[in-house]
Nucleic acid binder design. Structure first.
Lengths: 161, 161
DNA sequence: CAGCCATTCATACTAAAGTATGAAACTGCC
DNA sequence: GGCAGTTTCATACTTTAGTATGAATGGCTG
C-alpha cells in the first residue's frame, strides 16, 4: 500500500518530464523516418536539416508554452509579477486582497474560460473532488454563491486576463 | 515628415521579426560552420543532427519566451485603444446569426451578470420552469453545453454590453 | 382561419454544481 | 520536531442546472 502510494506520487511529480521524454522519443523516430525517406532518395541534406530545424524550433516553442501555463509550485509570486507586467488589465491589489492560493487561482482562471469542474479536473490532472474543494473555498474567499457570480466578479474586478 | 513617421512605426512594428530573421541568419552560418568542422572530420551525422535539434529547441524556447514577455509599450497602448473602442458596443452581426428570441436574449443578459435561474425568474416575473426552458433553447442556439460556456461565448463574441 | 412562432408553465428526470467533514501528505518556517 | 498553510482526495449529501416532453395561450400572417 505504502509503495503503491509512493509510486503514485512519483508518477504525479514526474508526469510532465515523462511526457516530454515520450514526445522526444516520437520525434526521434520521426526523424529517422525522414532520414530514410529523404536522404535515401538523395534529396539535399540542407532540406533535411531545415526540416529538423523547423521541427525542433516548434518543439521548443511548445515546451516553453507548456511550462508557461504549467504548474509553478514556488514561482507563483514571480508568475503574478510577470502577469502584472504583461497584462496590465489585472487589478493586482484586488487580487491580493482575496488571498487566493495559487491552485485556487488556477481553478478560477479556467472557470472564467467557461470550463466545467470535470474539464478543470482533466486540465490540471486533479480529481473532480479536489476541483470542487478548490471551487468551494474560492467562493468563500470571493464571497459569492456560485461559479457564475464568481466569473462575473472576477471580470468586474479584473482579476483575470 | 509623414513618411519618416511612417517608417519609424514600420520599424517599430517589425523590429522583432527583423531580430528573429537576423538570429536565424546567424544560426545558419553557425550550422554551416559546424557542418564543415564536424562532417569533414567524418564525425557521425547523428551527432550533427542532435546538435541542430538541441540548438533549435533552445531557439524555439527563446522565441516563445520573447513573445511571452509580451507586446511592448506601444503595442499595449494600441491594444488599450482597441479595447476602449470595441468594448462598449455589441457585435450585432454575430448576435443576429444566433436568431435568439427577445426573451432568450433577456435571459442571456442576466445570465452574463451572474444571476441564477431563480434570480432571473424573479427579475423577469417568470416561473423557474420558464427560465429553464429559455436557457435550454438558448444553449442549443448558441451551441454550448452550459451557462458558463454561454457566458464565455457571449463575452468573446461581444453579444452583451 | 389555420399555421407558425413566441411565450409561458408543469412534470419528471438526469447531470452537474456546491457543501460539509474528515483525512493524509507535503512545504516552509521557527 | 511541531505548527500553519496548501494540496489532494473521498464520501455523503443538498441544491441547482439542464433536458425532454407536453400543453395552453396569444400574436401575426398568408
Amino acid at each position: 500500500m505504502e509503495q503503491m502510494h509512493f509510486l503514485k506520487d512519483l508518477f504525479r511529480k514526474y508526469r510532465y518530464i515523462g511526457l516530454y521524454g515520450l514526445s522526444f522519443a516520437i520525434l526521434v523516430f520521426l526523424l529517422k523516418w525522414l532520414q530514410w525517406n529523404f536522404l535515401i532518395v538523395d534529396y539535399s541534406l540542407d532540406i533535411y536539416i531545415g526540416l529538423i530545424a523547423v521541427l525542433f524550433t516548434v518543439l521548443g516553442i511548445w515546451i516553453a508554452m507548456q511550462f508557461a501555463k504549467g504548474p509553478k509550485p514556488v514561482a507563483v509570486a514571480q508568475q503574478k509579477e510577470d502577469i502584472a507586467e504583461t497584462k496590465p488589465d489585472i487589478d493586482q491589489a484586488e487580487l491580493e486582497k482575496l488571498k487566493l492560493t495559487p491552485r485556487e487561482y488556477e481553478v478560477l482562471l479556467l472557470m472564467v474560460k467557461g470550463h466545467s469542474n470535470a474539464e478543470i479536473a482533466e486540465s490540471l490532472f486533479l480529481s473532480l473532488s479536489t476541483v470542487k474543494t478548490h471551487a468551494s473555498n474560492l467562493f468563500v474567499k470571493m464571497d459569492v454563491a456560485s461559479r457564475t457570480k464568481a466569473i462575473e466578479k472576477a471580470k468586474r474586478l479584473r482579476l483575470t486576463p
